[in-house]
Amino acid sequence: MRILHTSDWHIGRTFHGVDLRADQDAVLAEIARIVAAEGVDVVVVSGDLYDRAMPNADAVRLCNDAFVRIRDAGARIIATSGNHDSATRVGAAAEFAAAGGLHLRTRVPEIDVPVLIEDEHGPVAFYAIPYLEPDVVRGELAVAERSHEAVLAAAMARINADREAREASAGADRLRTVVSAHAFVTGAVPSESERTISVGGVETVPMSVFGDVDYVALGHLHTPQVLARSVRYSGSPVPYSFGERSDRKAVWLVDLDANGLRDVTEVALPLARPLGEMTGTVAQLLSEPALEELTSHYLSAVLTDPVRPRDPMRVLRERFPHLVHLRWESPARDKETSYRQRVSGASDKEIARRFLIDTWREPTAADLDLVEEALQQARAGSP
């Protein structure tokens, strides 16, 4: 059996105000193409289908279109909800969707109810664990401790009990098992674009909680990561922060044989638009020939002009139409000391002068005269 592991689609997300629907649609179409080209039997989506609990109509339509393309490419789909999703909304039509090959697992009572899919070697049990908010589900899972580890361990205990019962009933030595989960597993590395899932300061879970299942398909972190041969994050198919500009985007192809996990292969996903960063004055950024290769990128710029430029976004977008973020760092600012240290012992007028340098420019004598006049008026009006 061949499985494709993906997660964290975050459909409906914007990137510094830029609508990413076209980028997301393109990469999800590529995933469907991979399904057809590689003969994938099952696609596992490990949470965060949407970027918010109440996705708009366009986001829902894009997600549905992606499911249809994947199903038309020949694979069944097992998807669950993440911390960005509304479990109730994602799973609203689960019973009807299952008849068409889309299995949506979003509720605690379904954690130990596998989707059983047969290949030439017998059944493979797919258990899908939705994002478990400890305060919300620990009563349902009979867990006293308020932590992600406790609720996920309780979920796995249910799964293991069901596995053992099925093995005993079938007289089988071992039931091949795939588990998907949306969690932050110890040893993994987060990026800038994930929303924290910590509750009470305890957000990580140990990898050991998953036991000896054949493959663990993780979601939540946005960079593909290998925690163990059989425990992996697929990452998001689209970058959602400039911290991900050098990350690869990919899906995992997981092959099972009669004995369990046989092989895992990474398949790279194309970037609809690369990310880049640049630093310099406005004049330098507009004239530097080496920056020409960045004109098609989503860009973040750090401006080093001695005086805060006027309307730099509009000016720079004439050359870099996909510039989405910028900040100004005055060369006069001392970055090695704190603001409190820099103004310690300074007069009100000097503090005002340094503030103008940091936020505007070096003030003229006339500017400082106006500052002194304002300070005198403020003192005169003080009780």
Rank of each mutant, 00 (worst) to 15 (best):
R273W: 00
Y298R: 15
L316N: 08
L291A: 00
P306G: 08
T279Q: 06
L285H: 13
P274V: 05
A332E: 11
H297R: 09
V302G: 10
V324Q: 01
G280F: 12
L303H: 11
W328V: 06
V282L: 02
L285P: 05
A283R: 15
R319C: 08
R317I: 08
D311V: 01
A301W: 11
P274M: 15
V302Y: 09
E318N: 03
H322N: 09
T279A: 11
T279W: 08
V324A: 02
H325E: 15
L286D: 07
L286H: 10
S296M: 07
P321M: 01
W328H: 12
W328I: 08
A283I: 00
L291S: 05
E277D: 12
E318Y: 03
R310E: 13
P331H: 09
V302A: 14
A332D: 12
L326W: 14
V324S: 00
V307P: 03
V282Q: 03
T295C: 14
R319Q: 02
L323C: 12
E329D: 12
E292R: 11
T295F: 03
P321E: 00
L316A: 02
L303A: 10
L323S: 09
S296H: 12
Q284K: 07
R273H: 01
S296D: 15
P321C: 00
E277C: 09
S287D: 15
P306Q: 05
A290C: 07
L291C: 00
A283L: 03
F320M: 00
S330F: 10
